[in-house]
Structure formats: C-alpha cells, structure tokens
Simulated assay, not measured.
Amino acid sequence: MKESATKILIIEDEMIIGANISLQLTKLGYEIIGIISRGEEALLFIKENEPDIILMDIRLKGKLDGIETAQQIQKEYDTPIIYITANADEAHFNRAKSTKPQAFISKPFKKLDLQRAIELTLSRIGDNEGRENVVKNNPDSRYILSDSIFVRHHEKMLKIIISNIFYVEAERNYCRIYSKDKNYLLVMTLKTLDEKLPKEHFMRIHRSFIINISQIDEVGSTYVVVAKRAIPISKIYREELLKRLQTV
C-alpha cells in the first residue's frame, strides 16, 4: 500500500475461516481490523471504526443475515462489500445483487480469487477518487481562510477557492460540494458543514442545499438557479435570501 494499509473488516460466522482469510490478507499487506460473526455486532463495530472494504458472509449468526446486514450498513455508509458465501444458489444471489456488491465469491474459493476481488475493488475506489475527492470526516479536516476552504484528502490538505463553489447538496450523512473544477464528497452532514462555511458567502436555503450567494443567476418563487441547476428554496429561507440580495 502506498500510503497506509487498506483496512478490511471480515464478517464471517465460522471463525476458523475468518482467521484463515485474515492470515492470507495480512500476508498480502492488508490490515484486518476485525473478525465478527453477527450482523448486529458488525453494525456497532462499524460505528466506531471505518473499514475501507467489508468481506461479508451471507450466512451469519444472530437475527440478521449478511444481506440484511449489508442493507443496514448501506443506509449510512458507502463502504464497498464483497460477499463470500457457500450459499451460491439463485435466490441468495438475486438478494445479494440488490445490494450492489463489488464481488460475489463462492466457497470454497482460491486465495487468488479473493486477492483479485479486493484489487478490483480498490481500483474502482481509485477511479472514483480520480473523479471526485472523497474526504474523511476527521475533527481537524476543515480549515477556512477568507478566500478558501481546506479539506483533508488522505494525507494532503486540498484547497477549494470559495468563489469557485457553486452549491452544496446533502446526501444522507454525506454532502457534496459542486465547484467549477471538481466535485468533492465530504463524510459529514450538511448541518456540520453549514456551521463551518463563512456566512458572508454561503446560505442554507433548503434542508438539502447550501448555496454560494454570489453564484445565483436567477431567483424564482420557489427556486434559485445556480450553475444552470434549479435548486429549491424553502419558504422559511426566502425572505432572508431576498434581504441579502441587492434587489431593485
């Protein structure tokens, strides 16, 4: 790994198999942050830890099977999931497919199959990061100057010029900054980002949107147009927005 080892969580109900997978992947340079046998425990574990990839067995101990656990994870996180299972029948495959996993590996599997599945997953993640900068939510990850905001991307601080930002849109527990050059996906809520952005430039006009006031091209009765996109404006924010605009 170039910067730090990829963190992998193994969710597997047979601990011997889980330990064997852990040993193989550790030898390949990956960091195994946990081996868990129950979906309920995995959900709690993920809240305190941030795996880069999850290896998920479909058959698990407890109330939730692997597919149900994956569905719960995907309500809050974007973590890639690779299924490893002995239940490779059509019914299980169709259920698993609905969660859009990165791969589906049937037991018994070869070490090379697992290695390639992880490498392909990391390749896809890398491609996505090439299109947009995915920012981890560290307490010190945002720094704001008078003309720019800095966000942490891996070990680097990336500078975004405030005047280049069009608007910010909420996506569950994430928010996406749309700017002239790139889009940036931040792992934080819109409320948190709203508290950090300078109020002289930005305003929240909807539960899902913050806009750069200087980028407004048109104001309608229920929307504003920014960068050719019509963005809804809630009634409670409209009067305040008009006060901040120079109107004649």
Score class of each variant (00 low, 15 high):
4 S>K: 14
5 A>G: 00
5 A>M: 12
10 I>C: 07
11 I>C: 09
14 E>V: 12
17 I>W: 00
18 G>I: 09
19 A>L: 11
23 L>I: 07
23 L>M: 12
24 Q>H: 11
25 L>V: 07
26 T>M: 09
28 L>Q: 15
29 G>E: 10
29 G>Y: 11
29 G>D: 12
36 I>N: 01
37 S>H: 05
38 R>I: 02
39 G>A: 10
39 G>C: 05
41 E>V: 04
42 A>G: 01
43 L>S: 08
45 F>Q: 04
52 D>K: 05
53 I>K: 03
53 I>W: 04
56 M>P: 02
56 M>I: 00
64 L>G: 02
74 Q>H: 14
78 D>A: 04
78 D>P: 00
79 T>H: 05
81 I>C: 05
83 Y>C: 06
86 A>V: 06
91 A>T: 13
94 N>Y: 12
96 A>E: 08
99 T>I: 15
100 K>Q: 15
100 K>P: 03
105 I>W: 02
106 S>V: 14
108 P>Q: 08
109 F>S: 05
112 L>A: 08
116 R>W: 09
117 A>W: 06
119 E>H: 13
120 L>H: 09
121 T>M: 06
127 D>M: 15
132 E>F: 13
132 E>H: 11
133 N>P: 01
135 V>E: 02
135 V>F: 07
136 K>A: 08
137 N>S: 14
145 L>E: 11
146 S>T: 08
147 D>A: 00
154 H>A: 10
158 L>H: 03
162 I>F: 01
162 I>G: 00
166 F>K: 03
167 Y>Q: 02
170 A>Y: 04
172 R>W: 01
175 C>W: 02
177 I>N: 03
177 I>G: 03
178 Y>Q: 08
183 N>Q: 14
185 L>Y: 01
185 L>Q: 03
188 M>E: 15
191 K>Y: 09
191 K>P: 05
191 K>V: 12
197 L>G: 08
200 E>M: 04
202 F>Q: 08
208 S>I: 05
210 I>V: 12
210 I>N: 03
211 I>W: 06
214 S>W: 00
215 Q>Y: 04
217 D>M: 14
221 S>Y: 12
222 T>D: 14
223 Y>S: 14
227 A>C: 12
231 I>G: 09
232 P>C: 11
232 P>M: 11
247 T>M: 14
247 T>W: 04
